[in-house]
């Protein structure tokens, strides 16, 4: 296959502490699941290359780094993002009730544009028995906001790929309709030491 276009997209994943954001990312990117819980340590950005139609997408997916615990997210996390995964734990009613706050935070922090900002909602841990958030309730929350809803399990790899690719697809559509870009001159710092001159 020789897709013609290449696009870089930045996606972010947010939600209450402990809902499984990092596990979802690792299931999607690395096809692995770690049983032992630890607040995200060291991980911050994961990359995955996928092909949608005739476009090669490099997804750069930003995790919170544990800053969601006391609602101390940095604005660099949101800036320049092309889409957002909202996550909650179906066994934790509080994590579902916090979604309005998380969604509000994201919308308040992204740079506003005409095209609406793509989001998907993931209800994680459907592999566990003591469910607290009925599927219909979550779907209702999403319907009124035009956000796709996926019931997922990071542990058993249920619906994870479908959810991420739905978001990538929506983000790509929005990206393609915002092709004028006044950030073309920006530079990324690099360690190169070429060029030597004196004024």
């Amino acid at each position: 296959m020789n897709p013609r276009k290449k696009v870089d997209l930045k996606l972010i994943i947010v939600g209450a502490i402990g809902v499984g954001k990092t596990s979802l990312l690792h299931q999607y990117v690395h096809k692995t699941f770690y049983e032992e819980y630890q607040t995200t340590l060291g991980a911050s950005i994961l990359s995955k290359i996928i092909i949608l139609g005739d476009t090669t997408l490099k997804l750069q997916i930003w995790d919170t780094g544990g800053q969601e615990r006391f609602r101390s997210m940095v604005s660099t996390f949101y800036k320049g993002s092309d889409g957002c995964i909202l996550a909650f734990d179906v066994t934790d009613l509080e994590s579902f009730e916090a979604l309005d706050i998380w969604r509000g935070d994201v919308l308040a922090k992204i740079v506003p544009m005409e095209q609406s900002y793509p989001m998907v909602l993931l209800g994680n841990k459907i592999d566990l028995a003591d469910r607290k958030v009925p599927q219909e309730v979550a779907q209702g929350w999403c319907r009124e906001k035009d956000i796709p809803y996926f019931e997922v399990s990071a542990k058993n790899d249920i619906n994870v790929v479908q959810a991420f690719e739905m978001l990538a697809s929506r983000a790509l559509s929005r990206y393609q309709s915002i092709l004028e870009n006044h950030l073309t001159e920006s530079i990324k710092l690099s360690p190169d030491q070429s060029r030597s001159r004196c004024c």
Binding site: L41, Q67, R69, F70, S72
Partner: peptide
Amino acid sequence: LYPLYGLGELPQGFARLSAIYGGTYMLNK
């Protein structure tokens, strides 16, 4: 050099570094 979105991005970049190595952040405290 100057960072897009202002110099306020610099402390936040380093705060994020601390967070991903286990630092705990509390604003409004």
